Simulated scan of single mutants.
Amino acid sequence: MIMKGMILDSVAAIIASVLSLVEEYRLRNKRPRIIRQPYVNRDSLREANINSILHCGDTHCLGQIRMRPAAFYSLCNILVERGLLRESVRMSVKEQVIIFLHLLGHNVRFRVIGGRFFRSTWTVHYYFHIVLQAILRLYPEVVKPPTTSIQPEIQNIPRFFPWFEDFIGAIDGTHVRASVPIEIQDRFRGRKGGTTQNVLATVDFDAKFTYVLAGWEGSAHDSRVLNDVLSRGFKIPEGKYYLADAGFGSRKGLMPPYRRTRYHLKEFTNNPPENERELFNLRHSSIRMVVERAFGILKARLRVLDVEPFWSFKTQVDVVLACCVIHNFLRGVDPNDQITREVDLEMDSHDTRTLLTRREMREETNECINKRNAIALAMWTIIVLVVRYEKELIRSSL
């Protein structure tokens, strides 16, 4: 009897356990079920995304990474050949450069790029800085001082040669949006509002940057930034000149236009120059537009320079320099892409220069005044002689 009771108790316990498991299973099935997502082959999708950028036509590629495929592959080859970039276990050189160019071209956040290329935010951040440093190492090779020989863009145009044969480029400053701590924002607040950094650059007549200094606060005047440039060892070859606006003054090596004299191209549209000063200013304005053209192409191509950045200020300065390196590289391998043509058309139809205030004018040196006067007088004399000769021909024919 005792044995029989033990067996019954065991059976009852087993039945109770089974019933408990059945009840738990029944309750579990009442909970909302999590539907398993289909498997995503991230490597395959990432490769397809890269191929769509590079192999769907020049226009599509230009819109995505701001350069055409041939220029992109040329840039990748240079970075690899110089030992500046290498493929890693995680990411190819091609993907590293595409991510970097897309960030500069559109100023998107790291997490946005990460979502598009199936990468973590940390990975995008890491490789962005790897490529940034690689591009900066190309600076001495790509951003070179101008040659002291007569530049073809001067020599081949009668309006400028021989009058501007000693000119090696143009110098000017531009403002780039900056993000800085609130305690120093007043120093970086530019004339048009918002915080900016003042970037000073020299440009040759092929619209290539020959020197770039970034990082000055937006409230700093161009002449103050120039003094810093000169203190850093920037040299202007003896007897050579840069075209400058009146804000720089006529210090040695810089040639501004005549003050209080018509200067802007639109002012001469229906009224040709009436004296040597106006003629000089007209040609000065025509040729100095190259520096505004260079800045225009740079900002149109790489939108990161025209919106508020989201990284540290040191990185912001490095990004400006890297953008100038990319600009010069493209001027060498693909100087007439769609972005360049669009900027040229816009500049042909609009004169964006503004009048300078008296506060921005600086004392001129006698050397530059004499040089400018000699050029202006020589150009005007030629015009006068040609007009007289034509009149004599008309009289003799009568």
Rank of each mutant, 00 (worst) to 15 (best):
residue 6 M to L: 14
residue 9 D to F: 02
residue 12 A to S: 04
residue 14 I to Y: 08
residue 17 S to A: 12
residue 18 V to L: 12
residue 30 K to V: 12
residue 35 I to C: 09
residue 36 R to K: 15
residue 36 R to N: 05
residue 37 Q to V: 07
residue 38 P to Q: 12
residue 38 P to F: 14
residue 42 R to C: 13
residue 43 D to T: 15
residue 43 D to V: 11
residue 44 S to M: 13
residue 45 L to D: 15
residue 50 I to C: 05
residue 51 N to D: 14
residue 52 S to H: 13
residue 53 I to E: 03
residue 57 G to C: 09
residue 61 C to P: 02
residue 65 I to C: 01
residue 66 R to W: 10
residue 68 R to F: 08
residue 76 C to V: 04
residue 78 I to K: 01
residue 83 G to Y: 01
residue 85 L to Q: 01
residue 86 R to P: 01
residue 91 M to R: 03
residue 91 M to I: 03
residue 92 S to M: 01
residue 95 E to F: 01
residue 101 L to P: 02
residue 110 F to P: 06
residue 114 G to F: 02
residue 115 G to T: 09
residue 118 F to D: 08
residue 121 T to D: 06
residue 121 T to R: 12
residue 123 T to H: 04
residue 135 I to D: 00
residue 135 I to S: 02
residue 137 R to M: 14
residue 139 Y to L: 11
residue 143 V to D: 04
residue 145 P to K: 05
residue 147 T to D: 12
residue 153 E to M: 15
residue 154 I to L: 13
residue 156 N to I: 10
residue 158 P to I: 06
residue 160 F to W: 14
residue 161 F to H: 15
residue 163 W to R: 04
residue 166 D to N: 15
residue 168 I to H: 00
residue 171 I to Y: 02
residue 175 H to S: 14
residue 185 Q to H: 10
residue 188 F to K: 06
residue 191 R to P: 04
residue 191 R to N: 07
residue 196 T to S: 15
residue 196 T to K: 07
residue 197 Q to L: 04
residue 200 L to I: 06
residue 200 L to A: 02
residue 203 V to T: 02
residue 210 T to E: 03
residue 215 G to T: 05
residue 227 N to H: 11
residue 227 N to F: 08
residue 230 L to Q: 10
residue 232 R to L: 13
residue 235 K to P: 08
residue 235 K to H: 14
residue 238 E to K: 04
residue 242 Y to K: 00
residue 243 L to W: 09
residue 245 D to Y: 08
residue 250 S to H: 13
residue 250 S to I: 07
residue 256 P to F: 02
residue 259 R to E: 09
residue 259 R to T: 11
residue 260 R to W: 08
residue 263 Y to D: 03
residue 265 L to V: 06
residue 267 E to L: 07
residue 269 T to V: 08
residue 269 T to I: 04
residue 273 P to W: 03
residue 279 L to H: 12
residue 279 L to Q: 08
residue 286 S to P: 10
residue 288 R to I: 09
residue 291 V to E: 03
residue 296 G to W: 06
residue 306 D to S: 15
residue 308 E to T: 13
residue 316 Q to G: 00
residue 317 V to T: 02
residue 321 L to E: 00
residue 326 I to A: 03
residue 327 H to I: 00
residue 331 R to P: 12
residue 337 D to S: 02
residue 342 E to C: 00
residue 345 L to N: 03
residue 352 T to M: 12
residue 352 T to Q: 09
residue 352 T to N: 10
residue 355 L to R: 10
residue 357 T to S: 13
residue 358 R to E: 15
residue 360 E to R: 13
residue 365 T to D: 09
residue 365 T to Q: 11
residue 379 M to V: 00
residue 379 M to R: 00
residue 382 I to V: 15
residue 383 I to A: 14
residue 388 R to T: 14
residue 391 K to I: 08
residue 397 S to K: 05
